[in-house]
Design a protein around this nucleic acid. Structure first.
Lengths: 349, 349
DNA sequence: ATGAAAGCGCTAACAA
DNA sequence: TTGTTAGCGCTTTCAT
């Protein structure tokens, strides 16, 4: 029926030159009569410009790349969504790449994206270390990363305010609830500076208050790791009054372990997390945690790449997005009178 | 440093013609000595072919579009991941579009993708109805959809075996557990045929067994909707023995409502779902549900588009991916001796 | 104001 | 085997 028509076809049908058609489509002034003919011809053929050719000509694709370790992880998924929305609002498409938590795949993604000449890349890197030298890629290719460990002279960084967030959380535990013996589940050693900052903040608050330092048990940020780590905590440090998961997934795993040990959260022990994933409210004792502003993170990242697309020479920048303490019940606070509804819409199929 | 070099630059440096360079890069035989010179020149410049130009020339981009209502929804996110992985394994990139559950945005995405001339589209449509006529787009543009309501002569469909899955689930409830009074939380009216199939299967099993038909309460597939619907069920149909959520999110919401009513799952009432999201195992009474094979769905969808890319004239096809009953504890079964660990890795940042 | 023609970076006939 | 050349579909000088 309608097919793959070219500018030239429209020009032929309207009996004008290709440049005239091009002008009409770009909104450049043209004799009204010709414009009329062009529009009609285009409509008849169902013509739509070939963005590929435009991109080649213009030297810019109108697409940004997004590399995440794994979109199926809710945190990255939410971030991807925010980025997609803001990017499209600015006329950019988003091509998505999973690095599958592997450095080699991350490099592969970068190569793919460079090959396709996407205009810029938002990189949520796998672990510390910046991608090595972006070899073979133009140095003025806009890249923004999500962890300071990936920073480089030409790589901007956006990050949550981990320190302030964890500070508020721990202050709440030791201040409001007067808890004194905390155990932390954290990656060891922390390869992401985000993790290091959070752990550092826990230590800093306790030191400031002259409380005993936290017991630290290793956990690789997964639910299962949190569960196992909490079992260990209950066994080795039975006088712990609170378990701090460095993220929500581990905190939820810890809650499970506590329940399985026949104890109750928060009556016997408090459990708190960091992230504020939507499922954090889906459990018996809704999780007290620190909310990361994913929308803010996504928007900032897009802003940084897009600014750098316009001016590749920009000096390196860093954006710190505020976090917010979310007090629910797992810390020992009472349920508020009216539960705030789940901010996410979790429609399923 | 290294920059944006072209084939021509390599040719000049190696003192050969551009076609020779092109041949080397495409693996076409060339005099060893020349090949050597070309490779060295390319390495020196850090040259990488411009995929954009290649695409324009070849008439194919090497990219498929993926339109989902919302990637931040775990179900779609997981699907997106599977598709991205299989697509990249076959040399395709994936450009991601959120339709934000709005038909107008869906159309917009289609326009965007057509403009960029992606080679095909995988469409997880918002609600029933096929996208109207793909206006202005070539009819032989490969499109595959995820719900039969979107089928069209040129649009392939892939779907889970909803009927069989729900059949097995309900048989388990009324057979193994001898429950007789079921309440269902379902979208009303079901706009997706998937939902209609699931609800139909519940009715069919009960009818077959000459049991009373289910009470049906409306829920729009969200956690909150499930919670509210379950409250209504407990109030209006207090003799219900099981609540069937048409998806896991609603089932989990229902569990919450049951707990808030001071009842216990599964002792006082059974609750089951459909999907098998990873969080289904994170709750006190791990959810008995039907697993959708997201990897299979994703792979099938990719296979269908990619086949249609090679032969646009293909007749319409439909793939039904098997589902699998996952018995856990929320139906009343005992906990198995060894819990199977969470199949997803929920690493967070 | 419009059209002819060159060119974005690459590939593929065709010629040498 | 290698080089020359003509496009892929579009934009943009540059004449007219």
């Amino acid at each position: 029926m309608t097919g793959n028509f070219r500018l030239k076809d429209v020009a032929a049908l309207a009996d004008v030159s290709t440049s005239t058609v091009s002008r009409v489509f770009r909104g450049v002034a043209v004799l009204p009569e010709l414009e009329e003919r062009v529009r009609e011809a285009a409509a008849r053929l169902g013509y739509q410009p070939n963005g590929l050719a435009q991109a080649l000509r213009a030297g810019r694709l109108g697409v940004v790349g997004l590399i995440v370790p794994d979109v199926s992880n809710p945190w990255f998924a939410e971030l991807a969504r925010e980025i997609e929305v803001v990017a499209r609002a600015h006329g950019h498409g988003v091509v998505l790449c999973n690095s599958d938590n592997r450095r080699s795949q991350e490099e592969e993604c970068l190569d793919l994206l460079w090959n396709r000449r996407v205009d810029g890349v938002i990189l949520v890197s796998v672990r510390g270390e910046p991608p090595r030298a972006l070899p073979g890629r133009a140095v003025d290719w806009p890249v923004v990363a999500f962890d300071e460990s990936c920073a480089a002279p030409t790589i901007d960084v956006v990050t949550s305010d981990n320190r302030a967030g964890m500070d508020a959380l721990v202050e709440h535990l030791v201040g409001t609830h007067a808890l004194r013996r905390l155990s932390v589940i954290a990656p060891q050693p922390p390869s992401l500076v985000a993790a290091a900052e959070r752990l550092g903040a826990v230590r800093a608050v306790l030191a400031r208050r002259r409380l005993p330092p936290p017991e630290v048990v290793e956990g690789d940020l997964t639910y299962e790791a949190g569960r196992r780590a909490a079992e260990e905590i209950l066994r080795r440090y039975p006088d712990s009054e609170a378990i701090v998961g460095l993220n929500d997934a581990m905190a939820l795993g810890a809650m499970r372990a506590v329940a399985e040990a026949g104890l109750s959260v928060p009556r016997d022990i408090a459990v708190v997390g960091f992230d504020d994933m939507s499922v954090a409210t889906w459990v018996a004792a809704p999780l007290t945690t620190v909310r990361q502003d994913l929308a803010g993170l996504g928007r900032s990242a897009y802003r940084l790449v897009s600014e750098r697309m316009n001016d590749p020479q920009l000096a390196q920048r860093k954006v710190v997005v505020p976090t917010e303490l979310r007090v629910r019940q797992s810390c020992g606070c009472r349920a508020p009178l009216s539960e705030n509804p789940d901010p996410y819409h979790e429609e399923q199929r």
